[in-house]
Amino acid sequence: MPNISAKIGKLTLKNPVLTASGTFGYGNEYNRIYDVSKLGGVVTKSVSRYERKGNKPQRIVETPSGMLNAIGLANVGVERFISEKLEFLQKLETSVISNVVGSSLQEYVEVTEMLEAQDGIAGYEINLSCPNVKHGTAFSSDPKLAFQMIQAIKNVVKSDRPVIAKLTPNVTSVAEIAKACEDAGADSVSLINTLIGIVIDIKTRKPKIKNVTGGLSGPAIRPVAIAKVWEVRKSVKIPIVGIGGIMTWEDAIEFFIAGATAIQVGTANFVNPNAPLEILEGIENYLSKNKIENLSELVGSLEV
């Protein structure tokens, strides 16, 4: 059996397949279909300081090989996350990564501090990059702000839990932001979040999504995501978690070759609920067949 564990800071994931925030709820939903403990980790729906209702509908629309969403970070808030959702997550035999979001630096820090006091959380993914809320991407568009945010969060994280900065591709240079996060002490960066898009109903001349713009995800964005992973790989030393339109194990392998240490499955969960498991199995088979003993040998092995 090849070694498929993946190291993110001081956290060792038993395998490199994670689920992307916002596409996997709080884990319990998909556990009705398969044993989610088999995954390398579960990244929760974003958790904010206070409960968020989210945007008005219509919130999603299908696009060619993708979908546009503007949910608006609807979530139960950190207090209800701790009282209602965490117990289930704590029972999982896999790494639970809490995705943290806020509308100010202070809120991000407060949420992280509150989660630090809880058991059963293996790491934090800091959502610097939601395109569907006001100022959602500010922290991920300006290297100084990204630096301040990650530094402030690292200051309150006393445990060994890694801090992963989730980055938007909607910037001139994602590599520059990634470098700022690394300089601030981030243990890892995850990318890409969705690409901003609009779909118009030509009969009504209105946007199909009430929020006007939404975040594009799905296989349509995969080549962009792979290019960003490759670009960031050249500018930082911390591990990269690759995200963007991964539907099959072949897609995941592309991300590893481009430079991702681990990957997240997002939109594919909606299309094929068993996708993360099938991807995991496919990765193992690929490594075995190609006599690759350690997944890490594949990471960043792109030949150009």
Binding site: G25, E29, P57, Q58, R59, N69, I71
Partner: peptide, 16 residues
């Protein structure tokens, strides 16, 4: 009925 992506309470598209 509603537009929905997952049907499982995850994608949060089908709000009323």
């Amino acid at each position: 009925e509603s537009v929905m992506a997952c049907g499982l309470g995850v994608c949060q598209a089908c709000v009323i």
